[in-house]
Write a protein that binds this DNA or RNA. Structure first.
Lengths: 229, 229
DNA sequence: TCAAAAGTGTTCGAATTACACCCATGG
DNA sequence: CCATGGGTGTAATTCGAACACTTTTGA
């Protein structure tokens, strides 16, 4: 195969911002970097792209390899390529965010991998430009989640309204009026109320709901106005 | 300097979707690809990243080199990296869109470069995956322009309301009610009406306006509801 | 005088906001 | 029986949608 002559070839990596929710708090998953440079410091999940992988495939592989997570929501949100962002060699990184239900994978992540969840507001200093990537990821899920029901990816199949509201409040760092929140969500027509209650959070218990995935995309999801009161 | 061993280094390119507006129609700028493979076919503006450029710098350099355009609005909107998107060698491309006022650069582009404007609805078949990149760019400016006043980058300093409306209608491929459009735009408080009229489009003439750049970001720009009637 | 584009208001219904009390239950 | 969190309603206002005629002026 002929090649393009005289051009610089560069290392290309994937970095993954993994958002998780445990029913109460929004968190992100970090690992202690296992190799130099910056070995032992907190880092996003990352890895290099293999020769024959697409970007999406690479992101899925890296996630599987570092956390055992498979089949989770993953979305690309940009590329980061300042010449000296890695001290060892130039690396251009394509950034993804993942959304997962923490409880679903709790034991797995603790036991098999050395990953740790951090509250979104208590993230330590990260290696290289990972803090910048994280900020961009937060911005991205905020703009996306105002118009698309992606945050349900962070919840179990059965969830309660208080959990859902905690989640939205966590993502946007704001308080939402509970009555208006419920009215808006139910009016979109994407929630199915179950008989069963979750008694873990209160004495009265909160009804479980599921997301009605049927015709989900056809329903106009827009909760822009509930945020930034 | 030490290097990361045993990892594949890949060609990284920039591809630029250049949107332009001439007061009536939304267009994009294409060039005939000057080298193999696919020489002679229509292509987005692209080029390889140099060793010491950031991604934004590379995008600006490539734009300057291929079109003479400098200092225009440029925004990254993603990376494209299917293993065989270029037939010759694997290339990962970081995609940008640019917004420019066609009339400002008209002669320059025709004379010095072999670039051509195409109506947004009459774009020819493009090389490789450039059609896919173009679709993503259209999607991106639609979502961004509903919430941010970026489309003013496509207009000259002085513009008329009918031009502005043509532009929004072009970007969203929709018709907008003129009275509601005016009311909404003026209520945001970002337009300054001038004395002067543009007589080129009609006998009556249309008043020129300028964008009030002061406190622009503080004003909540949201015209979501005017679109997709 | 007329054709062609610019400019302007009003009404109606829907959606958003603001706000506070009752409910159910386990301890 | 009471503390805790869950669940619900209403009124005032704002906002969005729909709709048509008058103005200006060059040809």
């Amino acid at each position: 195969m002929t090649k393009y002559a005289n051009q610089t070839r560069i290392l290309v990596a994937i970095d993954c911002v993994i958002f998780g929710f445990d029913g109460e708090n929004l968190k992100i998953l970090l690992i202690k970097r296992g190799f130099e440079p910056e070995k032992g410091k907190w880092s996003l999940m990352g890895g290099f792209i293999k020769e024959n992988e697409s970007l999406d495939e690479a992101a899925n592989h890296i996630l599987l390899q570092l956390t055992g997570l498979d089949g989770v929501y993953l979305e690309q949100f940009g590329a980061f390529g300042a010449p000296n962002r890695d001290h060892m060699e130039r690396i251009i990184s394509v950034a993804y965010f993942a959304l997962i239900d923490i409880r679903k994978y709790e034991t797995q992540l603790n036991d098999s991998y050395h990953a740790e969840w951090f509250l979104i507001n208590e993230v330590p200093k990260l290696v290289f430009d990972h803090s910048e990537i994280l900020e961009a990821a937060k911005e991205k899920i905020r703009s996306k989640a105002a118009l698309h029901p992606i945050l349900f990816e962070l919840l179990p199949d059965k969830f309660t309204i208080p959990q859902l509201q905690n989640l939205y409040e966590g993502v946007y760092s704001t308080q939402i009026d509970n009555r208006n929140f419920v009215r808006k969500l139910t009016s979109i027509g994407i929630l199915i109320k179950l008989e069963e209650k979750d008694k873990s959070g209160s004495k009265k218990g909160a009804f479980y709901f599921t997301l009605d995935k049927k015709d989900l995309e056809a329903k106009s999801f827009n909760i822009f106005h509930l945020l930034n009161k």
